[in-house]
Amino acid sequence: MASNHEEVKLFGIVGSPFVTRVDIALNLKGVQYKFVEEKWKSFSDTLIKYNPVYKKVPVLVHNEKPISESLVIIEYIDETWTPNSILPSDPYKRALARFWSKFIDDKSFSAVQKVAFTLDEKEREKHIEEMQASFQILENELTDKFFGGEEIGLVDITGAFIASWVPIIEEVIGLKLLTIEKFPKLYKWSQDFVNHQVVKEKLPNRETQVAKFKALYESLVASK
């Protein structure tokens, strides 16, 4: 637990997949922190002061020292608070965890985003193929209950959006993207992950997120 003289704040937006990662990591470590909610496209001066380079969330502020970028923040959390390791202690396994986290951000996240916000059917089809190719690579890589073994680790937390956001996109757009038939291991992982106590406590309310994404998607369609 964070001791009394420590002040931990997380600046974020509810529902942001990058902020959710940090929420999960802090919860896994049992760190007490204050969540400072920011408004989308209208960030506070405090947030800009703490993250003048990227001017975005999440930002973790620990004893007035700000850290930006979700994966950098997670590593900081892991090194600062000892219980429940997020990264493996073995240097090779740690390097692999970083590699797969970068793969998820570079390949899977960008493809999922394109699928969610592309209206042209031909274009979207191309992005679905790209997304499913990345899912297939992850499917082949998954040899245990979680990417981190029996317990969740860095790769699982990085891939939180696959488990929590993809079903919302499926519901709003009416597509089947992550099915038990096509990706049996990844699908089972997604269920185990969202139902993990540490994760479940920090996932944003599903109905609220569906409503938000639906409104965003409908405004996108309307402005086409």
Rank of each mutant, 00 (worst) to 15 (best):
Met1Lys: 12
Ala2Glu: 01
Ala2Trp: 03
Ser3Glu: 15
Asn4Gln: 10
Asn4Cys: 04
Asn4Trp: 11
Pro17Glu: 13
Phe18Glu: 08
Thr20Glu: 14
Asp23Tyr: 13
Asp23Leu: 11
Gly30Leu: 08
Gly30Ser: 11
Val31Leu: 03
Tyr33Val: 11
Lys34Ile: 05
Val36Ala: 02
Glu37Val: 09
Ser42Gly: 02
Ser44Leu: 06
Ile48Tyr: 00
Tyr50Met: 06
Tyr50Glu: 06
Val57Gly: 02
Pro58Val: 05
Val61Ile: 05
Asn63His: 11
Glu64His: 03
Ile67Met: 00
Ser68His: 14
Leu71Glu: 02
Leu71Lys: 12
Ile73Ala: 10
Ile74Phe: 03
Glu75Pro: 03
Glu75Gln: 05
Tyr76Lys: 10
Ile77Gly: 07
Glu79Phe: 04
Glu79Asp: 12
Thr80Glu: 15
Ser85Gln: 01
Leu87Thr: 03
Pro88Phe: 02
Ser89Thr: 05
Ser89Val: 07
Pro91Cys: 03
Pro91Phe: 04
Tyr92Thr: 10
Lys93Ser: 15
Arg94Met: 14
Arg94Glu: 12
Ala95Arg: 11
Leu96Ile: 13
Leu96Tyr: 02
Ala97Lys: 07
Phe103Met: 12
Ile104Pro: 00
Asp106Leu: 10
Lys107Tyr: 06
Ser110Asn: 13
Gln113Cys: 10
Gln113Ile: 09
Lys114Val: 08
Val115Asn: 14
Ala116Leu: 09
Leu119Arg: 03
His127Gly: 04
Met131His: 09
Gln132Phe: 07
Gln132Gly: 06
Ser134Gln: 06
Ser134Asp: 08
Ser134Ile: 12
Asn140Val: 04
Thr143Phe: 06
Asp144Arg: 07
Lys145Tyr: 02
Phe146Gly: 05
Phe146Ala: 03
Phe146Glu: 09
Gly148Ala: 00
Gly149His: 02
Glu150Asn: 07
Gly153Asn: 04
Leu154Asn: 00
Asp156Trp: 02
Thr158Pro: 01
Gly159Val: 09
Ala160Lys: 11
Ala160Val: 13
Ile162Ser: 11
Ala163Phe: 05
Ala163Asp: 10
Ser164Asn: 07
Ser164Leu: 14
Val166Pro: 03
Ile169Asn: 07
Ile169Thr: 04
Glu170Tyr: 06
Glu171Arg: 05
Glu171Ser: 06
Gly174Leu: 07
Leu177Lys: 09
Ile180Cys: 06
Glu181Ser: 13
Lys185Ala: 08
Tyr187Ile: 12
Tyr187Gln: 14
Lys188Asp: 10
Asn195Ile: 15
His196Thr: 15
Val198Cys: 08
Val199Pro: 15
Val199Ser: 14
Glu201Arg: 14
Glu201Ser: 15
Lys202Phe: 09
Asn205Thr: 15
Asn205Ala: 14
Arg206Tyr: 14
Arg206His: 15
Glu207Ala: 14
Gln209Asn: 13
Val210Ala: 07
Lys212Asp: 07
Phe213Met: 04
Tyr217Val: 01
Glu218Thr: 04
Ala222Thr: 07
Ser223Lys: 01
Lys224Leu: 03
